[in-house]
Amino acid sequence: MKICVLIKQVPDAGSVLRIRDDESWVEEDKLVFTANESDSYALEEALLLKEAHGGEVIACTLGPERSRQVLKDALSKGADRAIFLHDESFNNLDCNGLAKVFAKVLEKEHCDLILCGLQADDTGEAAVGPMLAQELHLPHVTMVVQTELLDGGLKVKQELEGGWFRQVETSLPALLTIQSGINKPRYASLRGIMAMKKKELRELSATDLGVPATELAPMQTLQRIYVPVKTKETVYLEGAPEEVVAQLVDKLANEAKVL
């Protein structure tokens, strides 16, 4: 079974974000970056499927130079090889463009399964996965919380809203978007980290892929980002921990009357 996992590098969930003066994006110089959370679960699911059924796991990312790290981490955890899509012209891609670039790479790989996280924790569009499935004319299932390989197909459990689920069957090849919590992502072992250094990490540019720039012209433009204006009047309690706690107990007892 040949599985490709798409991984995006994003700022760590605990990051304190500072917006650039020109409001174009956040300042990146002091941020700690990591693999997108649901993508880490997708990688683990790919590794588990490979361990159970044999095959190959390919890790793939698109991004600036720093994002090479998520591929090294994936290789250290057990992915067999990695593809790094890196080109200045990729910087302004929208979700349609991203799907087209990934499709260009993956149409040559003929994977049985493509896994990605359900959404990126930075841009939060939840769009590239199903779009890529469309570009490759593959079936897809979103928000998968369990996978089971059948003869020539796949049975998965799909999360619906409000604690509901359903079983879904699909033929292979297929694309799944993976929900967080589906498994327990492993840490890289020292041996894995040593092995990583000998594994293939192939870098591909727009020219290598042969995607015409006209096909990738973004159809949407990010005008600015900003800290939202608060609509609710939050009372902030400040001071030493003891004072803050005393204020809170007083407010809860006498103002909100919920104690």
Binding site: P11, A13, L17, I19, V26, D94, C95, N96, D121, D122, T123, G124, E125, A126, A127, M131, M219, Q220, T221, L222, Q223, R224, I225, Y226, V227, P228
Partner: peptide, 30 residues
């Protein structure tokens, strides 16, 4: 184009769509 998970819009010469990025810590005009 798909502008997903919008929380509102602003009218003008063209519509500006407002959506959340970074898990809601920041808003974006698109």
């Amino acid at each position: 184009p798909l502008i997903s998970d919008c929380i509102g819009f602003q009218k003008g010469a063209q519509i500006t769509w407002v959506r959340q990025v970074f898990q809601g810590k920041v808003h974006a005009d698109v």
